[in-house]
Simulated assay, not measured.
Amino acid sequence: MTTAAGPTLCVVVPCYNEAPNVAPMIAALDAALAGIAWEVVFVDDDSPDGTADAVRRIAHADPRVRCLRRIGRRGLSSAVIEGALSTSADFIAVIDGDLQHDETRLPLMLAAVQQGADIAVGSRHVSGGDAAGLASLWRERLSASGIRLARILARAPINDPMSGFFLIRRAKFEALAHRLNGQGFKILLDLLLASPQPLHIVEVPYRFRPRAAGESKLDILVLVQFAGLLIDNTLGGGLPLRFLAFALVGAFGMVVNLIVTLLARRAGIDFGTAQAIGTIIAMVANFEMNNRLTYRTIRLRGARYWRGLVLFMLVCGLGAIANVGIARALYHANTAGIAASAAGSAIGVVWNYAVSATLVWRAR
């Protein structure tokens, strides 16, 4: 047994392919947190670039540094949850591994929570803050769209609900942990939505830096996952988030089917052939979107991708047969045409989701 005191602050760094940033991040934290007992936990989603090895090389000589390597699991929010629950420190900070957040603001954020705030948020959108590090107009608009949506549903006034840079008391995090959705990329918003009472938030301005190395993970799929989180919260968690994503992708496939069929008809192709072409293209589009979005964490690659595509098309073909059969049966039983069609579609979606999850994207 030892009598050495544990860390006051644990900095959780969710990362994927951030090997070049590991040593600079640790050096920056060492300088910024002078006089504070701290540790850092890099939660690495089995990066192929050797991020975990880069952390462990430093951890051999520095006991404040730890690596939590996850195999078969992906996602920023779930990485933060696992990292936060792995520490005994009284306070938990979350910071991205790409060096775009300003670690020198951590002492101010720690002081704010020690003085009574529930959570301190590094904010780009208060006086003194700056989001210039987003670099492109596309990323600025994507982030701004998410912020507008989040402000509507957040249960506390906040200017930057999409921030990935915040500090919270461990006891508060653990109290909310069982209520977290844990999917997607916006763990701060997840915390705000999970809290039964509005949280006392202090926003600390910081300048969002340009990325030093690696590639940005902000893309349209992140925004779609974010929309799924909002829908899930609105429905009170009554439906699995993956099912919602699967259904939204299916709706997109219906649009693709309609557009392709209309274009084929304009090209002089008969309706039956045009419909078949549209259906096949829609199935392929749905498979690709589900593989990249709905089942992003267990995405199929290589030979498994092509096997999955064939299985998916077979599953959806059977689902289409069930859809039409049930709709016809209900219609002949004097059910209104729209209601019969809706019931058939609902059965088809549930069938496609259940069988796809079992056969196509079966967790390894």
Score class of each variant (00 low, 15 high):
5 A>Y: 12
6 G>S: 11
6 G>Y: 04
6 G>Q: 06
10 C>T: 11
13 V>A: 02
15 C>G: 11
19 A>K: 00
20 P>H: 07
23 A>D: 09
26 I>V: 15
31 A>S: 15
36 I>P: 13
39 E>T: 06
40 V>E: 02
44 D>A: 07
49 D>W: 02
50 G>N: 02
52 A>L: 10
52 A>Y: 10
52 A>H: 13
56 R>V: 07
56 R>S: 10
56 R>N: 13
57 R>M: 08
57 R>N: 12
58 I>S: 01
63 P>M: 04
65 V>I: 11
66 R>G: 03
67 C>R: 00
75 G>K: 03
75 G>V: 02
75 G>C: 07
77 S>P: 02
77 S>T: 14
79 A>T: 08
81 I>P: 05
83 G>W: 04
92 I>C: 01
92 I>A: 08
95 I>R: 00
99 L>N: 00
100 Q>E: 15
103 E>G: 10
108 L>N: 09
111 A>M: 07
113 V>I: 07
114 Q>K: 13
116 G>P: 13
116 G>D: 07
118 D>P: 00
120 A>V: 07
123 S>Q: 04
131 A>C: 09
138 W>N: 03
139 R>G: 05
143 S>T: 14
145 S>E: 09
155 R>L: 13
167 L>E: 03
168 I>S: 02
169 R>Y: 07
170 R>V: 01
171 A>D: 15
172 K>M: 14
173 F>W: 08
182 G>W: 12
184 G>Q: 11
185 F>H: 10
186 K>Y: 15
188 L>C: 00
192 L>I: 05
192 L>P: 03
194 A>R: 12
195 S>V: 03
197 Q>G: 03
200 H>F: 05
200 H>S: 15
203 E>I: 06
204 V>C: 03
205 P>F: 01
206 Y>Q: 09
207 R>T: 11
209 R>T: 01
216 S>Y: 06
216 S>E: 08
218 L>N: 10
218 L>H: 04
219 D>L: 10
223 L>I: 12
225 Q>T: 11
228 G>M: 09
228 G>K: 07
228 G>F: 09
229 L>Y: 05
231 I>F: 12
231 I>N: 00
234 T>G: 15
234 T>Y: 13
241 L>V: 14
248 L>P: 00
252 F>V: 05
252 F>C: 06
260 V>P: 02
261 T>A: 03
263 L>R: 07
264 A>R: 00
269 I>S: 04
270 D>V: 13
271 F>D: 03
274 A>D: 06
276 A>Q: 05
277 I>E: 02
278 G>F: 00
279 T>W: 08
280 I>M: 03
282 A>H: 00
284 V>R: 01
286 N>E: 15
287 F>N: 02
287 F>C: 01
288 E>W: 12
290 N>I: 05
291 N>V: 03
295 Y>V: 04
296 R>N: 13
296 R>Y: 14
299 R>M: 11
302 G>D: 11
302 G>T: 05
307 R>D: 15
310 V>H: 05
313 M>F: 08
315 V>H: 00
319 G>L: 05
322 A>L: 15
325 G>E: 15
328 R>T: 12
329 A>F: 15
331 Y>W: 12
331 Y>T: 13
331 Y>R: 10
337 G>W: 08
338 I>Y: 09
340 A>D: 07
349 V>K: 01
349 V>F: 08
350 V>N: 12
351 W>C: 02
351 W>E: 02
353 Y>Q: 02
356 S>K: 08
357 A>I: 05
357 A>M: 06
359 L>Q: 11
361 W>F: 15
361 W>E: 00
